[in-house]
Design a protein around this nucleic acid. Sequence first.
DNA 1: GGCTAGGGGATTGTGGAACAATCCGACAAG
DNA 2: CTTGTCGGATTGTTCCACAATCCCCTAGCC
Lengths: 230, 230
Amino acid sequence: MTGVFDALAADRSRLERAGAAQRVAEVLRDHITEGRLAPGTRLSEEALGEALAVSRNTLREAFRLLADQRLVVHELNRGVFVKVLNPGDVADIYTLRLALETAGVRALRSAASERLAAVRAALERAESAEALDDWVTVGTADLHFHQAVAGLAGSERIDECMAGLMAELRLAFAAVPSARGLHEPFLRRNQVLAGLLESGEIDDAEVELTRYLDDARAVIVRAMTGAGGQ
Amino acid sequence: MTGVFDALAADRSRLERAGAAQRVAEVLRDHITEGRLAPGTRLSEEALGEALAVSRNTLREAFRLLADQRLVVHELNRGVFVKVLNPGDVADIYTLRLALETAGVRALRSAASERLAAVRAALERAESAEALDDWVTVGTADLHFHQAVAGLAGSERIDECMAGLMAELRLAFAAVPSARGLHEPFLRRNQVLAGLLESGEIDDAEVELTRYLDDARAVIVRAMTGAGGQ
DNA sequence: GGCTAGGGGATTGTGGAACAATCCGACAAG
DNA sequence: CTTGTCGGATTGTTCCACAATCCCCTAGCC
């Protein structure tokens, strides 16, 4: 049944052209996660439709996609708004993050070797960005690092779930003034975590991961309530 | 800040009137999870729009909602189809289930008491349905039981994630001929698990849960490949 | 003065029709 | 048997119309 075309079949996803709704959703997602659309902004169907040159129907389909990624909230008869994260949301996100990343750590022994390589690769991207003082890129690499940790579980659904969580977290990052103060303290701890994983110390890695996420949550919540928190 | 209206606020979701798209999605979801729409069925926009008396616009919005719950798959220019679960999907679902339910067990000490009560309540619903030989209801209660276990974590996102997973699992259940053979062996193990939780034996509960899910996955995969496997 | 009630304007929710884009199956040609 | 091509059918997208709903503002009342 399976033949020499398996390598091609793996790239099948790249072949699927994106519909207009999907492309619109991607554009909006980028604008939101990069902070160009402030949380709370109302996304008017008419204004956006004109700006992006798509019809209201298509735009509404894009809104559905974004709503399921939790980047916007849809209020009946009022419209869609860029999601406003409150400290409770951040705590909730970190609860789920802990569950998913822990699952990755625990699956370490049965994980494919390239999965572990992805963890190291993300860490190195973060380090080289740090050398260039590019703290936004450090933040991106940090998210990729943790996605790779969860990815050790080798589950499509976990990967997708983490990707959504990370996009949502960017909303919180955008609200924090100093990207450096947010990421620098955790870079070294990423290195520690990667080391524990590569030497197979699962239990220690799990303990470190738990503390790590607890601390990170506290930092973000403090930054949110300190600055523009409601 | 919080006052005497908390109980009312909890019912807020029931108050939000549902748009037509949402109602259509619910109808379709019920038909799919109860097996009345066989996996692989193509959902024609024209035929369904006429049957449900809604426009194509509304129907397409409903399809987006279902696609994000993974109950249907949307293929560009080909339409939407009722999801066909393969054994790989089932394994993937159980990987994520293990992560979420484990998170619930581990949060047992800090869980609100009503969360643990929900676990017991679901178990009792399963037992009374068993006494009536109503194995479909037993299956529903079984899903609720495990949702309640994950719910111990007290995370909105985990709850929502589990709810989606359970709906997807029903697709697999629908493909298994004997509901009794599927659920009966696991009823007693649910009782064991609930006992461990109520007596606070977290580590033992986690071990039992891991074995439980591993066995359940194996049973379903065997049933799928044995009967109507692709 | 502050609160309630109601009206006007704007926006969303839904339906419907039209056309373009795409896919699939059938048939023909090599 | 494979490859090219055509035609029907379905989806993708746009545009328009109208009802439903919400928000703000004003008027009136206590």
